[in-house]
């Protein structure tokens, strides 16, 4: 890759007069020797799986692995169809579709990790809502996935995309930043605006801990995906309006990395702290596994 941070990525886009997704596709072609058509084809396959998981959660009765979650996506979607929502129909639908994918994931269904499975709802939620709000075609949405990938690539290599490594800011946070950047480019914004959106959105999830109840990727994961989709859209809207992150996006990523390192292990995917360690969290844990939750 000819870039290792977002500033270099934007500079590259400027030199070549290309959006982020085109640079990312070029890099892939260069790096792997695959043809452009193959690369697009491979991304389209992921897109199809994503859209199927969105669809499944809205049409089937999904029950999670533990039986604790499922059905919220449908609930929110049906609510949005009634027309009167506070966020507006499209943002509410984005929530529904993000929840939907995450519910399918929790039920051990087929999903695409974007960048992780715990955070797999946000990108599909945002992309499906852009289908409506922008009238974006499938081809365009697939291109947007490369924008998301470019941001995720920088975050993954400079910070972390793992809850065990950096808390939920590294999963839901990274996914939110990725989706925000994709939304900006799909709406016709510049590469600079795209990374500003990523920086703005990421700032709002800094410090988010990973505290899954009973160690399941359900509570709070699914709901956080719903919120992440709205946050991504809000970040994109702010950046498109010209708002800039005073702390440069690369430095926000650095802050995320450092915060992750400062996080105690209880709050990094060990189900020892936070929501997992609430009276109800513990009760549910016992309910699912019985009493033998102690370590050997």
């Amino acid at each position: 890759m000819r870039f290792s941070n977002l500033a270099e990525l934007v500079a590259l886009c400027g030199q070549e007069g290309k959006p982020i997704y085109e640079v990312m596709i070029d890099e892939h072609v260069h790096e792997t020797g695959a043809t452009r058509a193959t690369v697009l084809q491979q991304m389209t396959e992921s897109f199809d799986v994503m859209m199927k998981s969105v669809e499944r959660g809205l049409t089937e009765d999904i029950r999670s692995f533990s039986g604790l979650t499922g059905g919220d996506a449908k609930r929110v979607y049906e609510y949005a169809q009634k027309g009167k929502t506070l966020l507006g129909k499209q943002a509410t639908e984005a929530v529904a579709m993000a929840l939907s994918t995450s519910e399918v994931n929790a039920a051990m269904g087929l999903v695409v990790a974007t960048p992780t499975a715990g955070s797999c709802g946000i990108l599909p939620g945002v992309l499906s809502s852009l289908k409506e709000s922008l009238g974006a075609t499938e081809e365009q949405l697939v291109l947007g996935m490369f924008t998301a990938a470019a941001v995720g690539f920088v975050v993954a290599n400079n910070a972390s995309i793992s809850g065990a490594g950096g808390g939920c800011q590294a999963e839901v946070g990274s996914a939110t930043a990725m989706a925000a950047a994709a939304a900006v480019e799909l709406a016709g914004g510049s590469p600079e605006q795209a990374i500003q959106a990523a920086g703005l959105a990421l700032k709002n999830v800094l410090g988010l801990v990973c505290d899954p109840v009973a160690g399941l990727v359900e509570i709070p994961c699914i709901i956080r995906n719903g919120f992440g989709s709205v946050l991504a859209l809000a970040g994109a809207d702010m950046a498109l309006a010209g708002v800039r992150s005073v702390i440069p996006p690369d430095e926000v990523i650095l802050a995320m990395y450092n915060i992750g390192k400062q996080m105690p292990v209880e709050l990094r995917e060990t189900a020892l702290g936070g929501l997992a360690d609430t009276p109800t969290g513990r009760k549910l844990e016992k309910q699912i596994y019985g009493d033998d939750t102690k370590e050997a």
């Binding site: 991304m43 999903v111 695409v112």
Partner: peptide, 18 residues
């Protein structure tokens, strides 16, 4: 993480990529 499909993907059975 080397390229797009290390970030977008894998296509997988849930619930956790890691």
């Amino acid at each position: 993480f080397r390229h797009s499909f290390d970030i977008i993907g894998p296509i997988m059975i849930g619930p956790s990529s890691s």
